[in-house]
Write a protein that binds this DNA or RNA. Structure first.
Length: 588
RNA sequence: GCACUUGUAGCUCAAUUGGAUAGAGCACCUGACUACGGAUCAGGAGGUUAGGGGUUCGACUCCCUUCAAGUGCACCA
């Protein structure tokens, strides 16, 4: 719609002898209840037109109608100039823009962006919160790639630390040599089981010490199991062979389990980083910052940065004993990642409980003048809550990722069988379909919401399959495919039609917006933008489908045209869902 | 206590970034081709956009304030 903006700029220049920036022209979609497709808000122009908004609108509308052959009619209501673009233009858009294979495939923009997501701990299986993280990270990567970025997907695995030692210790104490093979348990679930067992033992010991007269805090410090776990961590850091071997073994179990979960989720990574390799990084940056005065040293030797001029606190970046803190490590890792990829932008998909940490991290990197520091972004998302309250993995009150996915498939199976349409499907196609639908419902449910908002997930009510859902959109796609195959559809952009019905025009208008929608979603790092657009498209298509007969169209030309329109809709629905990481079936 | 985030129909979410009468889905009520797939479509009812004040042609959106919820404020990660 840039040609409208350009023409409007010229109109204002011509009519009112005033130069305005193209950005000052606010175009919007015309609301359904009015005639037209494009609306210009004329209030801002009344300052220099020195006329009322209606008259200004009429003058600009008259100019546009005379200058542009694409402008058919216009009407003005209050300060809104509603423009009707000719059907000829829209039909041309369908044939020349939408129908070709390269529609909405952006040219490479020469920029590289890193998306870091998932970033699990290796002491427990993934849960619902991780699912939100993974889906967001994967979808945003897809969207950025569609917008022309060169995307690197990165997973920073938290594979060391006291929490890992807890699982290891509990396994030594209670495990009797249990392995994934011997128990039949998925590796990450096996390790997670011992993490819970550790916590139980720890709690029991705390209670015992309290009954012997210790305070809560004392008991937490003095419980034998926690002391042992701490010793184990020290041995790990010292490279003790026995501890390292156990650590490697148990981590391998977990990785095998994660690989399965990632596969089910349909996410993947280009590069893994492990904290066991990066946790000592960052000290050279501390040195650098001390030298150029960004950091300062206190009397006890600890190193700090004063962020009070920026409205934040003083923040510790190195302990007095010279060892790292979380921030030290993250500074070092940021540097490492930049050295490896030299990316223009770097997106961290991390929960909103770390908002402050990332604010500080990015600020420090900028103060240090690090390359790429201006392209940092924390994609912060809200927690997923259960009706019963928060999920706590130590206490086992979590919605497990694998369980949930299985449950979604089962529900999809029940729904699908009740419809009775798949009886003729081969068994493996059925299984594939249940997975596609179940995951479609789950993914759409989690991604249609603005990432910032917290999400309430009720496992009992589960996820809907009707209305504003993934399966609704998948169904629309399958239905279009069914019609196309009945008609033996072939792409053809030479069907001469001159006039559009209302729904047909609405549909084309919506389809032309797809590239802009991808751009907007990429700028905001928001899959929700795509999700809502695809839903709108599916709804509009269904409306068209009910109002207009395709195979029984009034004549052959109309039938062929509607087939092109249907195929285009199916393509955009499919691509849009793909940006969300959701598959669409050919039939369901 | 301080900081950040959120608050829209009974419930789950939108609202083109300051634009028209705040839109969808679920749930509730009424209807729809004797089959291009009813996991659909059309309609009804449901709102003091948490409360109050301000800014302007215009405010869910910006500013101030009160309230509610969540998160963060470790020489933990």
């Amino acid at each position: 719609m840039n040609f409208i903006i350009d023409a409007a700029v010229k109109a204002i220049k011509h009519l009112y002898q005033t130069d305005v920036e193209p950005a000052a022209i606010s175009l919007q979609e015309t609301r359904k209840e009015f005639e037209g497709q494009i609306t210009i808000v004329t209030f801002p122009f009344t300052k220099f037109s020195r006329k009322g908004p209606e008259q200004t609108g009429n003058e600009i509308g008259e100019y546009l109608k005379n200058e542009l052959k694409e402008v058919g009619e216009f009407n003005v209501i209050k300060g809104f100039l509603n423009i009707s673009i000719t059907d000829e233009y829209w039909i041309g858009q369908l044939y020349n823009q939408i129908l070709p294979d390269d529609f909405a495939i952006a040219k490479p923009n020469g920029q590289k962006v890193m998306v870091e997501y998932s970033s699990p701990n290796t002491n427990k299986p993934l849960h619902l919160g991780h699912i939100r993280n993974n889906l967001l990270g994967y979808s945003v990567s897809q969207i950025l790639a569609a917008a022309g970025y060169d995307v690197v997907k990165v997973n920073l695995v938290n594979d060391r630390g006291i929490h890992i030692c807890k699982s290891m210790l509990a396994w030594q104490m209670f495990g009797n040599g249990e392995t994934p093979q011997s128990s039949g348990l998925k590796g990450d679930h096996l390790v997670g089981k011992y993490y819970v067992l550790f916590d139980k033992a720890y709690k029991a010991q705390i209670e015992e010490l309290k009954s012997e007269g210790q305070t809560e805090d004392e008991a937490k410090k003095n419980a034998p199991v926690i002391k042992e776990a701490q010793q184990m961590l020290q041995k790990w850091e010292a490279g003790d062979k026995e501890v390292i071997d156990l650590w490697k073994t148990m981590n391998e179990w977990v990785y095998a389990g994660f690989a399965e979960t990632y596969k089910q989720l349909g996410v993947n990574f280009d590069k893994y980083y492990y904290e066991s390799n990066t946790y000592l990084l960052g000290k050279d940056i501390i040195e650098e910052g001390l030298q150029n005065g960004v950091f300062f040293k206190k009397a006890d030797g600890s190193v700090w940065i004063d962020l009070t001029p920026d409205g934040l606190d003083e923040k510790l970046v190195l302990r007095s004993d010279g060892t790292s803190v979380y921030m030290t490590q993250d500074l070092g890792t940021a540097q490492l990642k930049y050295n490896d990829f030299h990316m223009d932008k770097s997106i961290y998909v991390v929960g909103n409980e770390q908002d402050y940490h990332f604010k500080v991290l990015f600020l420090i990197l900028r103060k240090l003048g690090k390359a790429g520091a201006d392209g940092l972004f924390h994609l912060s998302y809200g927690m997923v809550d259960l009706p019963s309250g928060k999920m706590k993995s130590r206490e086992g009150t979590v919605v497990d990722a694998d369980d949930l996915m299985l449950e979604m498939e089962t529900t999809a199976k029940q729904h699908t069988e009740a419809m009775g349409k798949v009886d003729v499907f081969a068994e493996d196609e059925k299984l594939q379909l249940y997975h596609t639908i179940g995951m479609g419902a789950l993914k759409y449910f989690l991604l249609k919401v603005d990432p910032k908002k917290r999400l309430l997930f009720d496992p009992n009510e589960s996820v809907d399959f009707q209305g504003h859902t993934g399966p609704f959109i998948q169904y629309t796609h399958a239905r279009i495919k069914s019609v196309l195959s009945r008609a033996d559809y072939q792409p053809n952009s030479n069907i001469e039609i001159t006039e559009l019905a209302g729904v047909e025009r609405d549909l084309i208008v919506l389809l032309t917006q797809f590239p802009e929608v991808i751009g907007a979603a990429a700028n905001e790092y928001s899959p929700a933008v795509i999700a809502n657009y695809v839903y709108e498209l599916a709804k509009t298509y269904n409306k068209f489908y009910h109002e207009k007969s395709i195979l029984q169209a009034e004549d052959e030309i109309l039938k062929q045209f509607r087939l092109q329109l249907s195929a285009s809709s199916a393509k955009v629905i499919s691509r849009g869902m793909n940006l969300l990481g959701i598959d669409v079936p050919e039939r369901m």
